[in-house]
């Protein structure tokens, strides 16, 4: 949902995630504590697609794991729909996508996609439940492979199974940690196209970590640049490109400008 479609400014929209003064120090009681995040303040709105970029080691994964209640911030607070990050996770409102596909090799594609539903207590022999999984597998274009085992699939296909597993229980928020970083260039572009299509179809509030600036611009409503050690918000750029976006978007003059200015920003950080 872009600004153009709703005709509203960002501040009028419903706030989903409120990151309030979040810091994270690893090994706080050791000789070498690492200040991974320092006083992060970000609001993220309904159906917004936010990318987080920055040099490696600047705390992108740490931030995302705090949002997903996989680790706890040292200071500050995260509120998701006016509850805690733990509440949101426990109510299955959040879906976390890892850099690796983390498929369970002893389960077929179908069984991997059924995993979240199974944990939520659904009866996986029920035909409606199975249909839900099948539909999601179809969304990522793998209908013909639902009974294959993950070892029989290519890296790109495996990553799509991981996407389906994250989509299947219809969470409200997607947290994606460089989900395509392990893929080759061509596959990664295809996956991004898939993600754009899916996001435009089933709008979800998304926080997307990447180190690929062009992709961040192409996909996002907003790009946040983190600076390293301690990880701080260095810059925040609204991407005011029309939606729906497609391959033509990449040719727009504004697109190229966003990409170049963000590249400058990140390169300057890297040199520090």
């Amino acid at each position: 949902m872009s600004l153009d479609e709703t005709g509203k400014s960002t501040t009028d929209r419903e706030r989903r995630i409120d990151i309030d003064g979040v810091s994270k120090i690893y090994g706080i009681d050791t000789a070498n504590p690492v200040r991974a995040l320092e006083d992060i303040n970000i609001d993220i709105y309904e159906n917004e697609f936010v990318s987080v970029i920055g040099p490696s080691g600047c705390g992108k994964t740490t931030l995302l794991k705090c949002l997903g209640d996989i680790i706890q911030p040292t200071n500050g607070e995260i509120r998701i729909d006016n509850g805690s990050a733990a509440d949101a996770r426990q109510r299955n409102q959040v879906s976390f996508f890892f850099q690796e596909d983390v498929l369970l090799p002893w389960r077929t594609v179908m069984e991997n996609v059924l995993l979240p539903l199974e944990i939520q207590g659904a009866d996986t022999s029920d035909s409606a439940v199975r249909q839900q999984a099948k539909d999601t597998i179809e969304t990522v274009g793998l209908s013909g492979f639902k009974d294959n085992s993950p070892q029989q699939l290519s890296g790109g296909m495996r990553q799509r199974v991981a996407l389906a597993r994250g989509f299947v229980y219809d969470p409200k928020i997607f947290l994606m940690d460089e989900p395509f970083a392990a893929l080759d260039e061509l596959t990664r572009r295809k996956m991004n196209r898939e993600l754009l299509r899916i996001h435009q179809e089933i709008q979800k509030t998304t926080v997307f970590v990447t180190h690929h600036i062009a992709e961040a611009v192409w996909l996002s409503d907003r790009v946040i640049v983190l600076s390293p050690l301690p990880g701080e918000v260095h810059d925040m750029v609204e991407i005011d490109l029309p939606r729906p976006r497609n391959e033509d978007t990449r040719g727009l003059q504004e697109f190229v400008e966003y990409e170049e200015s963000l590249t400058e920003t990140v390169m300057a950080l890297d040199d520090e």
């Binding site: 794991k65 997903g68 209640d69 996989i70 996770r89 426990q90 299955n92 959040v94 879906s95 976390f96 890892f98 690796e100 983390v102 369970l104 995993l115 979240p116 199974e118 944990i119 939520q120």
Partner: peptide, 21 residues
């Protein structure tokens, strides 16, 4: 670690992590 984090993010109980992974 990653598989355990996945199960945690899916709100799996300790028993489910044991039994399924």
């Amino acid at each position: 670690e990653l598989a355990r984090e996945l199960m945690h993010s899916l709100n799996a109980s300790r028993w489910e992590v044991f039994r399924k992974v």
